[in-house]
Amino acid sequence: MNSKLIWTAFWTIVVKEIRRFTRIWVQTLLPPAITMTLYFIIFGNLIGARIGEMGGFDYMQYIAPGLIMMSVITNSYGNVVSSFFGTKFQRHIEELLVAPVPNWVILAGYVTGGAARGLGVGIIVTALSLFFTQLHISHLWITLSTVILTAIVFSLGGFINAVYANSFDDIAIIPTFVLTPLTYLGGVFYSISLLPAFWQGVSQLNPILYMVNSFRYGILGVSDINIVFAFAMIAMFILLLGAYAMHLLNTGKGIRN
């Protein structure tokens, strides 16, 4: 396929994905807006007022970047895992398999669609957070690159989950039992400097810690970890997950007999 054909195929997948999550916005865009508003009210306003400062900022300001990142992570992952599994389940993945679309274009299209939802929800949550606190971006490019790369990492994760999933239960297990605990323990609500040394070490095994802290550094200028190391970790996850997703597509795992 020449580059025009590849671009058209890629853009077709992206548009289809964006049309899907905007068509069912009550299921995809509204719930994170409500959930995050509740987080801001309960943890930020009601409880946060009693916690006081964290990392030199009031608690609401401190958790806002983490909550934005949490919504980006869950929605990027959730979009691809449900969309690609639905595509498998209804068998319209066959529309793509019979067409001359290279596997990397299929992956790029779904990941871009997932990142689009993650970033869209991130913008909604950022706008909501401004009703509760003030956010001044300290490092624009770090903020943008972290959020985009994180959306890509979790879109890739969602894709791999969808390839292995055989039932709707299978697409709920990872988000419930892996993603949510890692997100909560990834420094969204607290600085790991509050933890004993042993648990600080354990926390550093959590990849989400690097993404949340890198994003927080971009907005507030404070971080528990080294930013260069954080970017290296995110890049490594993209390469590993991307390579594995391509391997699954090339071997036809879960989509070809």
Binding site: K4, T8, A9, T12, V15, P100
Partner: peptide, 13 residues
């Protein structure tokens, strides 16, 4: 939309 999407997979604008 189903037809137009399929056309897109074949690089048709």
């Amino acid at each position: 939309d189903i037809i137009v999407t399929q056309a897109g997979y074949y690089g048709i604008g």
